[in-house]
């Protein structure tokens, strides 16, 4: 875990309200896991007091050396609006890497990745890590869902890695019209995956967790909650545990990635 003032390497609008920002980072980020997150503080403004969490989208490397991290974000409020105005060379307060990421068990071969909306952000990093383990990516599939075609991100990134992509949108403007869980379930029926990884809105995660349970397939989900510190001090990010009624789990410390069976979403 490092807290440093880092430089903006780039900050580009990729479509609609979605941006990718590159930041320099500590060398220690070379050990970061997909699913881990960072928090940003936007200057000394106290009107919006709290830091904001973002999952790591990509490690920026050159000759196997870490040069920075990239975040994929959507402008949704005051802070992300402000973030979108940062220019190359600006300085930003970065704290991370935080939390527990996705775990890729040794024996998995066939992997399904499910990403809803901005939930795709950590999934590209995950796919890159899967690729590094030597798993045959042509055995893997990604399911990307969004409200409309503007909310379908990173499709080409996955395709270029050799991962098949299934697209669904609420309005049918890209891929099939409907919920992401429809193609997910039909593909599971055809050929059972060894593991499912998912990130997206709570309703989607809940549906994916139920499908995983139905087909007795291991499933890891990355969830988001409001949090103040991001490092286990404030205990603000409590989530209900399925296995221990006497204790809450904390997203920043126990998660943000959990086995789907552990959580009451």
């Amino acid at each position: 875990m490092f807290q440093e003032k880092n430089q903006v390497l780039w900050n580009e609008n990729i479509s609609g309200s979605y941006y990718k920002i590159g930041l320099t980072c500590n060398k220690g980020y070379s050990d970061a896991h997909p699913g881990q997150f960072i928090t940003l503080r936007f200057g000394d403004d106290i009107a919006r007091l709290l830091r904001r969490p973002f999952s790591i989208h990509r490690l920026i490397t050159k000759d196997d050396c870490i040069k920075g991290i990239e975040l994929l974000y959507k402008v949704v409020g005051t802070c992300t609006q402000k973030l979108s105005s940062y220019k190359k060379g600006n300085i930003i307060d970065l704290l991370g890497p935080l939390g527990n990421g996705f775990v890729i068990p040794d024996n998995v071969r066939r992997i399904f990745i499910v990403a809803g909306g901005i939930g795709v952000a950590p999934m590209f990093f995950l796919a890159s890590s899967i690729q590094k383990t030597g798993i045959d990516l042509s055995e893997c599939q990604v399911f990307i869902g969004g409200r409309s075609k503007h909310d379908i991100l990173c499709k080409d990134d996955f395709l270029s890695m050799g991962i098949t992509a299934d697209i669904t949108t609420d309005d049918g403007s890209a891929g099939k019209k409907g919920l992401i869980t429809v193609p997910l379930e039909s593909e599971i029926k055809k050929n059972r995956p060894d593991i499912i990884y998912a990130c997206g809105p709570p309703a989607m995660l809940n549906a994916v967790a139920q499908i995983a349970e139905k087909y007795a397939t291991p499933c890891q989900i990355s969830i988001e909650t409001i949090m103040a510190c991001g490092m286990g001090a404030c205990l603000g990010c409590a989530v209900e545990s399925k296995t221990d009624p006497d204790k809450y789990l904390h997203v920043c410390k126990n998660g943000p990635v959990f086995d789907s069976g552990l959580l009451r979403i």
């Binding site: 919006r48 007091l49 909650t225 103040a228 404030c234 990010c237 409590a238 989530v239």
Partner: peptide
């Protein structure tokens, strides 16, 4: 039970 915190102008509310 959650939610336990919310950001407000120049501050935050908590009910940990």
């Amino acid at each position: 039970p959650p939610p336990r915190i919310v950001e407000t102008s120049c501050g935050m509310l908590n009910a940990i």
